[in-house]
């Protein structure tokens, strides 16, 4: 075993390596990440470890973050766009404890953003890394449950089934009825699941200057989008891809063209819409009040 610096343990007990995972595991994950970057959109199998949080809580994202985290990094964790949701709080605390790194809620200050279900409204910059927590990495899974089949379909670039599904939506509803986890095509080659982002966020992936990494712990897959990768949402010429639009602005900061959460305010049908991205909303409010 390779020896590495242990984080100082205040109480005697098991000492964990920097950012929890041992260096051998981190190396294995980094190899998978590098392969993913070399083949954008391709799902790289990796030997996902059992983490001290449950599967479904972001074990894939946590492993990717643990593998790329350095002592100088500044980490932001969001869930549903918010820094203060309990799971985001818990993951941020995990890395503060096991890696002793600095954390932030400001998108612009973060070197790594780990996210569940959203991309921040503030555009990401070159040098930043966004790590997505992915539940089901296989975009074809709900059309074909068998891994042996879907891997072959990707290898042969056989995506007819997906287009048929989207077409059937249009025939039945008049729209493509996929509103989140909307499939994308990467560099004209692999169809990829963008994790369950609302499709509102899909365009933010296209040619982003940031490195985008996707980790699925339970399904043991890592995939990646290097900076400035082409990411196109699947559509048809006569039914082009569109994103959700909200008729009203954020009730708190007045922002338009951002993703909003619907908040039920009473039991008489009262509701209001507020920014899903808490950092974006807070920053706007701070700027508005000098």
């Amino acid at each position: 075993m390779r020896t590495t610096a242990m984080t100082a343990a205040a109480t005697p007990g098991p000492a964990y390596n920097f950012a929890y995972l041992d260096e051998g595991t981190k190396r294995m994950i980094r190899r998978a990440i590098l392969k993913g970057i070399a083949v954008p959109g391709y799902q790289v199998p990796f030997a996902s470890r059992e983490m001290p949080m449950p599967y479904g809580w972001g074990t894939g994202g946590v492993q990717v973050t643990a593998a790329i985290l350095g002592p100088a990094d500044v980490l932001k964790v969001i869930d549903q766009g918010a820094d203060d949701t309990t799971n985001a709080v818990s993951i941020r605390a995990f890395f503060r404890k096991t890696a002793g790194i600095a954390t932030t809620t400001r998108t612009v200050e973060a070197t790594i953003v780990q996210t569940r279900h959203r991309i921040p409204e503030t555009p990401l910059a070159a040098g930043q890394i966004i790590v997505y927590q992915v539940p089901i990495p296989e975009p074809l899974r709900f059309l074909e449950p068998r891994e042996t089949e879907t891997r072959t379909m990707h290898a042969l670039e056989e995506y007819g089934l997906m287009h048929v599904k989207l077409y059937e939506d249009i025939a039945r509803h008049g729209h493509i009825a996929t509103t989140y986890a909307y499939p994308v095509k990467v560099e004209g080659r692999y169809v990829m699941d963008p994790s369950p982002l609302p499709k509102f966020d899909n365009p933010k992936m296209h040619r982003s200057p940031a490195l985008q990494l996707f980790g699925a712990g339970r399904e043991k897959r890592i995939y990646a989008l290097p900076p400035y990768t082409d990411v196109r949402s699947l559509d048809f010429e006569d039914h082009p891809f569109t994103v959700q639009s909200f008729t009203e602005p954020c009730a708190v900061c007045g922002a338009r063209n951002v993703y909003l959460d619907e908040v039920v305010t009473d039991d008489r049908g009262g509701r209001m819409f507020v920014c899903s991205d808490t950092d974006h909303c807070g920053t706007r409010r701070a700027e508005a009040t000098p």
């Binding site: 869930d79 549903q80 989140y180 982002l197 609302p198 959460d261």
Partner: peptide, 12 residues
Amino acid sequence: HLKLPHYVDFQA
């Protein structure tokens, strides 16, 4: 994990 927040997807 279904009990974790899913409001952005549900909103969609």
